[in-house]
Design a protein around this nucleic acid. Sequence first.
DNA 1: CGATTCTTTGAAAACAGTCAATCTGTGTGG
DNA 2: CCACACAGATTGACTGTTTTCAAAGAATCG
Lengths: 192, 192
Amino acid sequence: MFEIFRKYLGDKTTLSNQDYALIESLCIIKKLRKNQYILQSGDVWKYDAFVCRGLLKMYYLDVKGQEHIMQFAPENYWTGDRESMDTDLPSKYNIDAIEPSDILLIEKNDFEMLRKTIPEFNNFVNQTIKKNVQTLQGRIHTSITLSSEEKYNNFLKQFPDIASRVPLHMIASYIGISAETLSRIRSQSAKK
Amino acid sequence: MFEIFRKYLGDKTTLSNQDYALIESLCIIKKLRKNQYILQSGDVWKYDAFVCRGLLKMYYLDVKGQEHIMQFAPENYWTGDRESMDTDLPSKYNIDAIEPSDILLIEKNDFEMLRKTIPEFNNFVNQTIKKNVQTLQGRIHTSITLSSEEKYNNFLKQFPDIASRVPLHMIASYIGISAETLSRIRSQSAKK
DNA sequence: CGATTCTTTGAAAACAGTCAATCTGTGTGG
DNA sequence: CCACACAGATTGACTGTTTTCAAAGAATCG
């Protein structure tokens, strides 16, 4: 299972076998069943999580028990609540597996150590953070700019793979509209 | 004017006079009149910009000519289009001054150099980026979770200073609703 | 003062949310 | 292997919210 992570890193960096050995020694392997949590609101998050296989979601549960999806994390994506990790405060969010998944966890301090000891790894992480910021900004942009229909089309364009793997109501939750509205939007679009 | 930046840095870091001298030598001072651009869509952004005085906004102009505000940057905030800077691609956004403003620009390469030569400065930048990520995530959270009224109240709580300095229609633009709707929401709230 | 920008208001239309019922497909246990 | 339960999707009717357009009132600035 580490092989997948190794391959991912190999695409983005040039690390020595020693580096890989060090990284591997710090990885905690976790196999998740469908619906299994890796974070529940109230817990403090202490890891960086890399998804090798499967699909997770991070979401907020409001007072009415409704789910608001902040992020989908398919294979080769990172997930976790950075805010909780950085502040050591309990998380507002939940993360669980939409599909049976394999993930790697690296403990916060180990991760920092890796960044300090392997400059290449650090550069790679900085790159990843930059991309992440771009993604977040893009989502804000679409959320204040686009109509519901445009948001949906944009989602399909941006995450075609995810769109076909998750139920419609989760896409609705992600873009911030009700499942019924999305269903109607989609049937309207189909007519054209 | 550098004094303001120095004070800001002093609050967050412990730098030597030498460090400050180096930083100052790379700062480009810019005074802006009201409505003056520092970035227009189509340009490539190449700086980190620190606001010493005044208030800027970063926004997207849609096909109808409507403004969608991505960020307000008052004194002691950073602004700029990181995406354009990181990718060297033309920006989609505009940045201009809502109030007469004084800003400091540090050229992208100089900024990187500072991060490499002054570890304290680098740590500080990393902290700032973390906070920025939290802010972005928080905004996504509110945008998919809250009603229009709640978004407005949340804005007032989060940015009371800005709320009193910008016209209502800019707040509306920032939270992603029409100016008329916000006007009505506000008069409703007043009744209670 | 005159011009511009900002805010408010009204009325109509478009849009989205809710609730409840039905339909569909899938998978599990008997 | 069937029947049933269950999760997801769709639809209708209704309600509530938001947008749009237009016009009129404030407020601000040179």
